[in-house]
Amino acid sequence: MKKIIVILLLIQTLNLFSQSNEKLGFEIAQKAVLMDQGFKSLSTKLKMTLKNRNGQTSERLLENKILEQVEDGDFSLIIFNTPKDVKGTATLTYTHKIGPDDQWLFLPAVNRVKRISSSNKSGPFMGSEFSFEDLASAELEKYSYKFIAEKDEFKIVEAYPVDEKSGYSKRVVYYNSKKNYRVEKVEFYDRKGDHLKTLRYEKFNLYKEKFWRADVFIMKNHQTNKETVLEFSDWNFDVNFSRDDFTQEALKKAGN
């Protein structure tokens, strides 16, 4: 009888312990999101460099426009400038905190705007090591969390995707608690639980005395040895977009 009580107590405490780790994990992720709130509008340019196993590289140039939303997910426009055969191709996305995002694609050769399914989470973005979900806006509601450990200034949290279509079983996220909880490293684990990719953020700058942004994202695929590097430039937090800058008409204009 005593033994049973001890075991029950033990389970109870373990349970409490894990519960509090989940709560702590969520709080850290939430802190990171809250600290980054209020940037309102942002436009950047980016260069994507794809490296294959043999070290051959290929470059793509893109532009990105974001309008922050508080109630629901952010709006974004991505415009492709190279490769030249797809120049002017652009996407418009209304991210949702819950449920699939709304997404449109503009094809300049035929001047056509197409509503596309946003449920392709795990597929690669333009042949890169980034999947669509890696580049989607980081909404808190898209994961459940668990605090794992604390190493120096880093708080390490595991994030488990809510969406079954995600290509990951978990992401291990390194938050820097001394720098507004900015994310400096993410490890991705595939559906089988194997370590698939690692994303490192480098060359941070502080904008508007509040928002940390990395100029360089390095995504390394451990299973294929391929790598993709994103280099951001021309950060502009003063663009002052409105919701009407994110219509299908605006999408067409962005691509033309």
Binding site: S117, S119, N120, K121, S122, G123, G127, G167
Partner: peptide, 12 residues
């Protein structure tokens, strides 16, 4: 109807 990432390598 689209089957996404059929081969785990991006084929839709």
């Amino acid at each position: 109807y689209t089957l996404n990432n059929v081969n785990g390598n991006g084929l839709d």
